[in-house]
Design a binder for these strands. Sequence first.
DNA 1: CCGCATCCCCAAAGATACTG
DNA 2: CAGTATCTTTGGGGATGCGG
Lengths: 209, 209
Amino acid sequence: MIVSKRYDQYCPIAHALGLVGERWALLIVRELLQGPKRYTDLAAQLPGIGTNILAARLKDLETCGVLTKRRLPPPAASQVYELTPYGEALKPVMRQLAIWGIQSLGEPKEDELYPGWLEGALDTVFAPVAPAGAFEFRVGDELVSIVDGEARVGAAEQPDVVIETNAVGFYWLFVERRFDGVTVEGDRELLERLLDAAAAPVGGPPVAA
Amino acid sequence: MIVSKRYDQYCPIAHALGLVGERWALLIVRELLQGPKRYTDLAAQLPGIGTNILAARLKDLETCGVLTKRRLPPPAASQVYELTPYGEALKPVMRQLAIWGIQSLGEPKEDELYPGWLEGALDTVFAPVAPAGAFEFRVGDELVSIVDGEARVGAAEQPDVVIETNAVGFYWLFVERRFDGVTVEGDRELLERLLDAAAAPVGGPPVAA
DNA sequence: CCGCATCCCCAAAGATACTG
DNA sequence: CAGTATCTTTGGGGATGCGG
């Protein structure tokens, strides 16, 4: 398993795929973008992964410098996995993958969403390109703000704009700029600038996948 | 094979990986970013792929709307594969993957490079974020220009800046802003703006992979 | 419990030969 | 040239076991 079975080309993309291109690898990174997690928590968030695969991936990702295993100080005897700076640098990749994928994903059904999804979305997709200002998103029962380009759970102190909708409204707002079912209070133009910055208009595949 | 074995989550990233996350898939996309190609040409550019895998991937990528099979008009009786607009929209993903991957790739050995590599690099990594102006790159025996945000093989008519180096110099110029072995004629500051726009400073993994 | 290692089974990948 | 057919090998999914 070690270092074998990669692509045999000098190419940054092929090399990157050699490091994080295997099944489950980028989903593990996705989980760790939300902060350090324990083995069991990872397994819980990745339905169907199988404990052997998880262990193998964690080992691989550790040896190639994407994440580190860290033992928590005495009171909590457990250990956690966390991204290295190089692993964190995958965020732009995840961002683009998410922007591309969502175009053919279709709107969410309410019961498919997991707690914290909005924070993940805002943190990786919107926050990195957010213009100066304070945004407050109230989507379903999630409440997350972006202030100075950083996503935070909870309300903003002095929000420039407050967006209220449900998950479906949020989906269409992002992929097609549709404001149906979306309530915007405050600086709507600032929100539009955020949406423009977040993603170029793409459109889905010719055949819905 | 059809539609099975995907990740079972409502998540744009998981969905994207379900479409293009399998082995070889993104490398096929990489090839087609350079324009339509025939089956045999693809096989030639992807050492070790195996004809059955290539055929299977092409079929999968076609059914999920990433590429199309097109039969060339009569004189040339062959058929080619080309990206759909949705497939082309993967370019930002490839861009970020390349930027991330190159940080731990190491400098090239001259015999590892394939003809046309510079055009690929400039087209997917630099051109999409290039500031207005005309850049001319002379790297080894490759000669490619970027004019108005588009990469083109050949010299620029009125270059604002001409960069001359070899592949190794080009590598370090990009990953560490080192100008050793790089000759810059004309507007050097414009080149620096291009480099700044192309990639945030990242740095490789703690352990060289 | 948590963090894996082991085992079994099957699906997918690799290699090669062959065909319209 | 553009694949399909066939065979072998590898890796993933699922369950279970086991030490700390």
